[in-house]
C-alpha cells in the first residue's frame, strides 16, 4: 500500500521542522500544506495509508476530511500550539504532539500509525461465513477464476471480488492455497472424490 504523510501547519518553521524530523526516518512522500482547505486538492487519492499531522485550532471549524477518509486509511496526529494537554478528547485522533515533543517520539507515533500487526482483527466481529461466501470459497478452492465463479453463481465479477475480500477479512487467510486448506478443514470440499494435494 502506498504511504503518504501530510503536514498541515500555518507556521513555515514548524512545517519544515516536522518535515526534517520525519524525512530523516521515513522513506515516504511528505506533503506540506499551510491550510487544511488545501487538503481538498488531494481528494482523488485512493487506497493509501495516510498519516496527517495537523495544527489543532480550537475554533470549532468543521473538519471536513470526508472524501480523503472514505477512500484511504487515514491516521491523525494533532499538533497543539499550546504546551498543555488538551482539555477534552481531540476529534479524529488518538495522538497529539506539542512544540515540546521530542523528535523520536513523533517518529514512534507515525510508526505506530502504520504498525501492521495492529491490523490483525482484534475486535469481536463474527467470523462465520455467509452461505454465499461459502459458495464462492468452494469454487475458489477448486481453482476457478473470478470470471468462471461469476458465471457459475450468476453474479457479477465485481460481486465475486467483494465476496473474496470479505472471506479474506473474516478468515485472516489471503492466499488461494491457504483458503483451499481452510475449505477442506471446514468440509466445504468433498475430499473423497478429489485428492486435496492436487488442490493446495
Amino acid at each position: 500500500m502506498n504511504k503518504k504523510i501530510f503536514i498541515i501547519h500555518s507556521s513555515e518553521i514548524i512545517r519544515k521542522g516536522l518535515n526534517a524530523i520525519l524525512r530523516s526516518y521515513f522513506n515516504t512522500e511528505i506533503i506540506l500544506l499551510e491550510k487544511r482547505e488545501e487538503l481538498k486538492s488531494f481528494c482523488e487519492l485512493t487506497g493509501q495509508d495516510i498519516v496527517i499531522v495537523y495544527e489543532y485550532l480550537d475554533d470549532r471549524s468543521s473538519l471536513n476530511f470526508q472524501q480523503i477518509q472514505q477512500k484511504n486509511r487515514v491516521r491523525w496526529i494533532a499538533f497543539l500550539n499550546e504546551h498543555e494537554e488538551p482539555s477534552e478528547p481531540l476529534p479524529l485522533c488518538k495522538f497529539y504532539i506539542t512544540p515540546k515533543t521530542p523528535a523520536p517520539q513523533l517518529q514512534k507515533m507515525v510508526s505506530r500509525c502504520w504498525d501492521k500487526t495492529r491490523k490483525q482483527a482484534k475486535t469481536n466481529d463474527s467470523e462465520e461465513l455467509t452461505a454465499r461466501e461459502k459458495d464462492v470459497l468452494k469454487l475458489v478452492a477448486l481453482g476457478h477464476s473470478n470470471k468462471v465463479i461469476a458465471e457459475k453463481l450468476f453474479i457479477s465479477i465485481h460481486t465475486v471480488i467483494s465476496h473474496r475480500k470479505n472471506i479474506t477479512e473474516k478468515t485472516g487467510i489471503k492466499s488461494i492455497s491457504g483458503l483451499t486448506v481452510y475449505a477442506i478443514l471446514n468440509n466445504l470440499i468433498d475430499t473423497e472424490t478429489i485428492n486435496p494435494e492436487d488442490l493446495i
Binding site: T171, G172, I173, K174, S175, S177, G178, V181, Y182, L185, N186
Partner: peptide
C-alpha cells in the same frame, strides 16, 4: 508479497483453524 502472504496464512491456519 505472495510468499509473505503464505507464511502468514500458515500461522493463521494453526492459530485459528486446526
Amino acid at each position: 508479497s505472495d510468499v509473505d502472504e503464505k507464511l502468514n496464512d500458515l500461522k493463521n491456519l494453526i492459530i485459528k483453524y486446526i
